[in-house]
Amino acid sequence: MTAATTSAPVTTRPGAPKPKTRTSVAGPLSQHHFVLRRLHSLSGIVPVGLFVIGHLFTNAQMIWQDNGETFQHEVEFIHSIPALLFIEIALWSAIAFHAGLGLYYTFSGKGNVAAYSYGDNIRYSLQRWTGVIALVFIFFHIATLRWRWDILGLWDTPFYYKGYSVPGMEEQFPALANVPLSAPLTAYALQYSVWVALLYLVGVVAVVFHWSNGLWTAAISWGLTISTGAMKKWGYVCIGLFVALMVFFGAAFVGSLRYDFDAMTPQQKAATLFTVGDGQWAFDDKERLETDLASIGMEAVLLPPEDADETGAAGDERPIVEPSETPGVADDAADHGGDAAH
């Protein structure tokens, strides 16, 4: 009898396969979907993007081989900005916002480069991968260099192995004590380990690609480039920006690899004094280091083992002076140090 019922209005299509419930974000995320999307785009381009440009430009000053003086000058300028903390918080929030939504958006799609290996599609997938890589990279970068985190000891970090300290330095050179001194730290890290160098290379390429490709897609999403021709032309501009930023990075990278630690001023040395787990010094010339420190009335003191432990160092007590080889690149750098220091 059921077969011969009258054709009453039906709400669902009879016989149609049941629709799968699709994932959709509840509440405010779906309510303000479009605004969030646009803010995501904007937060990537403007605060983060502009900061990255500035950052890379500053870092590029490393190329001058002046022991980071130009670089240091720029850094100090930045640190002299009033209410820097607020700017930093704003930046971190922008990054967190961009990254959070970005991760969610990333997993809403599913790359298919294997089947459709068109250039644009490869960049679609790369945009997502580089976003994730950039996020990991930026986190470690900030955490280790800015916040001076020693991440659970897993990050066998050469950045600030607190094997030694220079007592009294903070009183005598308060300005220096608060300066992150990223240049020598990073430079040393890059020279110290191929892996760190590689991480920086991959990380920065990812950041720069993500930003310049993001700029290209944003122009379409916002409706600025609407013809295929315009998309193409803007694409060339974005490639140009990518190349320019990579040149900045290249300058910083090369500059860092060629950084000459021994040529630093005693004050810089005091502030930069560090060593690494296996007892390798950043400085070639131990005697000169000691002389330099003495000239400003300082002396490097080995930190107590437990202190070192806390910060992740191996507990072994090491002699303060144990001359050993510095990374090869540093040797080269040392050779050319004099030429570049002008």
Binding site: T6, S7, P14, G15, A16
Partner: peptide, 18 residues
Amino acid sequence: KGIVAQDMRTMEIRAFRA
């Protein structure tokens, strides 16, 4: 007074009055 039709997917046969 209507038709008999079949869903080509489920093969259900039904009358629809009209």
